[in-house]
Design a protein around this nucleic acid. Structure first.
Length: 760
DNA sequence: ACCGAGAAATTTTTT
DNA sequence: ATTTCTCGGT
């Protein structure tokens, strides 16, 4: 750990605006921080300055970041500035901070401290059941529609009662929705559970309903700092207001510092309100605004492209990033025939960058939708490039992990009906829908939890087999509960996974996927052990909280030596030496769903802007002429945003490394004034070349060349690349990689086991 | 109660 | 294209 920085050196290396942002003192400060302008540095130095000057104790600091990773990073940086005193500070996401408060205060309003956190998946499961039970499909209630609507309502801090007052009573669809919403909220309360939106909303409710509780936190947090303020929604905004209010006994409100950039507001779909930042000065009288416009991240070329793009959003405050590091290299553009073609370009360029000495972990590939990962992954795997998917189908969303977690939840929060019902027949123990309904009914009639109902199995008229199964489950849960009292998270999970036979069932299953599922459960057990090591005092509830709140970006691990693949949303707040933005096409960026919404195209443009400004040295923009959607291949047109980048900043390579290609046709360059335009699309380009010549014919057969041995000098034939000579073989076992120089397509690296190759 | 086959729906972005 | 849902047979 580096040395503690003395207080009088905290301003070293900061520019005048940054210094002002670090040293300004007042009730409210808005730092308008352009991309890459060193805002994290400013925030940590500001905190360190407060503490060094004894203006605040660490425990009086509340810093809110967008992801847990950002929180961890900020904590680390703060510790390097001021040492271990940083430990007492609250640095976390909105959600984590609210959970911490709610666990302490839950008893005040009908919850217990072991409440469950329902993620969006859990919410949907619950909503689906309610819709079915109330037969609300007839009234236009779809699961996704209801879920989205409830989330929106909660983000506006309404509850079923206040919402009911706005409902048109003569509209049966509205009433059906209201009934579902009411039942959903009732179920959450009965299950001692909060959904993601409740974590914020109920904290606000708690503060408003119990001022003396709010005062505890108002007195505790004297300095509140919020990052990514442009992406706060109304509930978060209200929470900030509650926390910075004057206390009952007249202590003035805490000082508030917010950092944000309206050009990077990309979460309006989940209620983020750009007005929060636009109207900050009006909301917090006496506020000061400081602008950070000098960029320390990117080359001038990248910044010029970013500025040119974002300038097309008309209702923004004019702001222009600049740097003094020089122009750097041109942006590279590429148009592939298919998504696989595009992926091959990405892989080839990454290979070249790596050969020049750039580490894989300094390279990232962005896309608009998670569905785009398929083609990228296929080509990455074939090329044996180390990569990591960030986000997407997350570990904690896998069914087997949810099953295992449901067991743990049933231990700490036995009234959580969703969890108990999930484990009731997992693994299969002969308790199907009928048994479930009977237990549910018994629980409701007698006013007990489903967990309690399990204890009365023999009085419910089940057959002897079912009674036996229920009694076994019930006593196992009791045994695990007793063990959990000691806090042994890993032991509890292991006990449950073994005694239920869940792991054994997965291991002996004939479904080949179950092997991977068993490994995932083992991985979860490893996670619990790791957790116990890091948190010796950690309870089962602490563990469950942690896994409920992991964000996609939290998975990034800089030392892994892998290329990171992620959506542009996930990329917010990150930076890489080289960035690839893929799928820069109409219908995808802007996405077709956003193109029609008011403000949609502008938000998509901000998203593109966020993507561009993640790049330090090199930026690559790519697209494909055809792309599969729903398994159907359709044609795609270049994104309107591409044409907003001055043509001289981009060097286009339509088709890389294919023999007989357009290498000799630079006039077809797809710049702003290039080969497409008003008459539009690809019609003039696509027929120019027969499809068969493109390197996109990816076979979907799973190859297994496991026993194929190659030696330097061998000649091979590849399905896409034709003939080539093996130049080198590296790696061992299933990870053997052939370095091949293809006669036509140039040098490639191939994973021998699965590459579509044959020795000739 | 369980399992398989066929049908239907799905993909915007996320704490 | 893949995953989830539904239905009918065992």
């Amino acid at each position: 750990m580096s040395e503690v920085v003395p207080a009088d050196r905290l301003l070293d290396g900061l520019n005048p605006q940054q210094r002002e942002a670090v040293t300004y003192r007042g009730p409210a400060l808005l730092i308008v921080a352009g991309a890459g302008s060193g805002k994290t540095r400013v925030l940590t130095h500001r905190i360190a300055g407060l503490i060094a000057a004894h203006e605040a104790w660490p425990s009086q600091i509340l810093a809110i970041t967008f992801t847990n990773k950002a929180a961890a990073e900020m904590r680390e940086r703060a510790e390097s500035l001021m040492g271990s005193v940083a430990e007492g500070m609250w640095i976390s996401t909105f959600h984590s901070a609210c959970v911490r408060i709610l666990r302490r205060e839950a008893e005040n309003f009908g919850f217990t401290k072991n409440f469950t956190i329902y993620d969006s998946h859990d919410s949907r499961t619950l909503i689906k059941r309610i819709i079915k039970a109330q037969e609300a499909e007839e009234y236009g209630c779809s699961v996704s529609g209801v879920a989205g609507r409830i989330s929106k309502i909660k983000n506006e801090l309404a509850d079923p009662d206040s919402f009911a007052r706005t409902v048109n009573e003569s509209d049966p669809n509205e009433l059906a929705f209201l009934a579902v919403f009411r039942e959903y909220q009732r179920s959450l309360q009965a299950a001692n559970a909060f959904d993601f939106d409740d974590l914020i909303g109920q904290t606000v409710y708690l503060f408003r309903a119990f001022p003396h509780v709010a005062d505890v936190y108002r007195k505790k947090f004297r300095h509140i700092l919020i990052d990514e303020y442009q992406d706060t929604n109304h509930a978060q905004y209200a929470l900030i207001h509650e926390l910075t209010r004057e206390t009952e006994d007249g202590l003035p409100g805490a000082s508030l510092t917010v950092v944000g950039d309206s050009d990077q507001s990309i979460y309006s779909f989940r209620g983020a309100d750009i007005r929060n930042i636009a109207e900050f000065e009006r909301d917090f009288p006496g506020a000061t605004v400081i602008l950070l416009e000098q960029n320390y991240r990117s080359t001038q070329t990248i910044l010029s492209a970013a500025n040119a793009v974002i300038a097309n959003n008309f209702d923004r405050k004019d702001k222009s990033l600049w740097t003094d590091v020089g122009a750097g290299e041109k942006i590279v553009g590429f148009t592939g025939y298919s998504a696989h073609d595009e992926a091959q370009f990405v892989v080839d360029e990454i290979g070249a960058l790596h050969a020049q000495g750039m580490g894989y972990s300094q390279i990232s590939v962005f896309y608009r939708t998670n569905a785009q990962t398929r083609a990228l992954e296929e080509i990455f795997i074939r090329s044996a490039l180390p990569y990591r998917l960030i986000g997407g189908t997350k570990f904690y969303e896998r069914a087997e992990i949810k099953d295992a977690l449901a067991y743990l939840i049933s231990i700490v929060n036995p009234v959580d009906a969703l969890a108990v019902r999930r484990i009731l027949n997992t693994p299969k123990r002969g308790l199907g829908p009928a048994a479930e309904a009977q237990l549910q009914n018994f629980a409701e009639v007698n006013g007990v939890s489903v967990r309690e109902a399990l204890r009365s199995a023999d009085s419910l008229g089940f057959g002897p087999k079912a009674v036996r199964a229920i009694a076994d489950l019930s006593s196992l849960l009791d045994e695990a509960t007793a063990l959990a009292d000691g806090g042994a998270v890993a032991e509890v999970l292991q006990l449950l996974m073994q005694k239920t036979g869940y792991l054994d069932q997965l291991r002996t299953s004939k479904d080949p996927q179950d092997e991977a599922r068993a490994e995932n459960v083992d991985e979860l057990i490893a996670v619990t052990k790791e957790f116990a090591k890091n948190h010796p005092e950690g309870t089962l509830t602490d563990f469950l909280t942690e896994v409920s709140l992991v964000a996609a970006a939290d998975e990034i691990d800089d030392v892994s030596g892998s290329v990171s693949l992620m959506t542009m949303h996930t990329a917010k707040g990150l930076e890489y030496d080289a960035v690839f933005i893929t799928g820069v096409e109409e219908e995808l960026l802007p996405h077709r769903m956003a193109a029609m919404e008011p403000g949609g195209p502008a938000e998509e443009r901000r998203l593109f802007y966020v993507g561009i400004t993640r790049a330090r040295q090199r930026l690559f923009l790519s697209l494909a002429m055809t792309r599969a959607l729903f398994g159907q291949t359709g044609s795609a047109a270049p994104s309107r945003y591409l044409q907003e980048i001055p043509a001289e900043l981009i060097e286009w390579k339509e088709q890389a490394g294919i023999a007989g290609g357009w290498g000799d046709a630079p006039s077809r360059s797809l710049g702003r004034s290039g080969g497409w335009g008003d008459e539009g699309g690809w019609s003039s380009l696509a027929p120019a070349r027969p499809k068969t010549e493109w390197a996109n014919r990816v076979t979907n057969q799973i190859r297994d060349n496991g026993d194929l041995t190659l030696q330097v000098g061998d000649r091979i034939m590849h399905v896409d690349f034709g003939e080539g000579t093996v130049m080198d073989v590296t790696g061992v076992d299933t990870k053997r990689v052939a370095h091949v120089r293809f006669d036509q397509a140039g040098p490639k690296k191939l994973l021998i086991k699965i590459a579509p190759i044959e020795k000739i």
